[in-house]
């Protein structure tokens, strides 16, 4: 175990035992980044373990191709390790996602230049790796969930890349507006606008999918508007 990891474990244990409050995710990231900057590859790989799922899923939803998403994920972490000096604090996740978003845009540009080799096609059943399913869902629910996931992933491709990235980061990955702004280099107003347009477009596309996305009838609220702000 190298110095950075020892430091991380030490800080985590110290804060837990003395203060009673474990380090937040951002604080842990900060310690691991400091260790990685000293060349501690094990420390950096703890960050890889933490974020590889998010980076891969972002790339997969944006690129819609497993091989391209895999390449983009690997390149993201290599670029992140090389570029740690340019990380100026704040959300490491957003900083990392910015690299991933740039890699995805590079790949989309490459696909546009070479349309013959475009990977912009719906993933077939053979392309689908095992997905984390709801353990309490029955077989029918699981099948429906899979089918919906496949259809929705395909429909995301109909969004312009900027809107697609914003929608995936917000609604699939759960990023805040501020994190999306940091991850995309856009202002908060632009993020809001991209989300609004992307969601509206996706809603129209879903409406054309027939029964697959038909939700059970909900009682119409008489006079009481359904409130927002729960997120």
């Amino acid at each position: 175990m190298t110095g950075g990891v020892v430091l991380y474990a030490f800080c985590h244990g110290l804060s837990s035992s003395l203060i009673g409050a474990p380090l937040t995710g951002m604080e842990q990231d900060e310690i691991l980044v400091q260790a990685s900057r000293q060349g501690d590859l094990d420390g950096f790989n703890l960050l890889v373990d933490r974020y590889q799922g998010q980076v891969y899923n972002l790339a997969l939803r944006v690129l819609h191709d497993h091989a391209a998403a895999e390449d983009a994920t690997q390149e993201t972490f290599v670029a992140a390790f090389r570029g740690l000096a340019s990380y100026r604090g704040g959300s490491f996740r957003a900083w990392l996602m910015r690299i991933a978003v740039n890699r995805c845009h590079d790949e989309l540009r490459r696909q546009r230049r070479r349309p013959a080799q475009s990977l912009d096609r719906p993933l077939g059943p053979e392309d689908q790796p095992p997905e984390v399913a709801d353990p309490v869902a029955g077989p029918e629910d699981l099948a429906l969930q899979r089918e919906r996931g496949r259809a929705l992933a395909g429909l995301l491709l109909d969004l312009p890349p900027d809107q697609r990235v914003a929608v995936v980061l917000s609604d699939v990955q759960g990023f805040s507006y501020e994190e999306i702004a940091a991850a995309t280099g856009a202002g908060l107003g632009t993020v809001k606008s991209r989300l609004s347009r992307g969601r509206a477009r996706l809603r129209d596309l879903l409406a054309g999918q027939g029964e697959l996305f038909a939700l059970p009838e909900r009682p119409k609220a008489e006079g009481g508007a359904a409130g927002g702000g729960e997120r």
Partner: peptide, 15 residues
């Protein structure tokens, strides 16, 4: 969108 299943990373991306 929130119900979209997360696809596990196909391999470790450790450097």
């Amino acid at each position: 969108l929130a119900a979209l299943p997360q696809t596990p990373a196909p391999r470790s991306f450790r450097l």
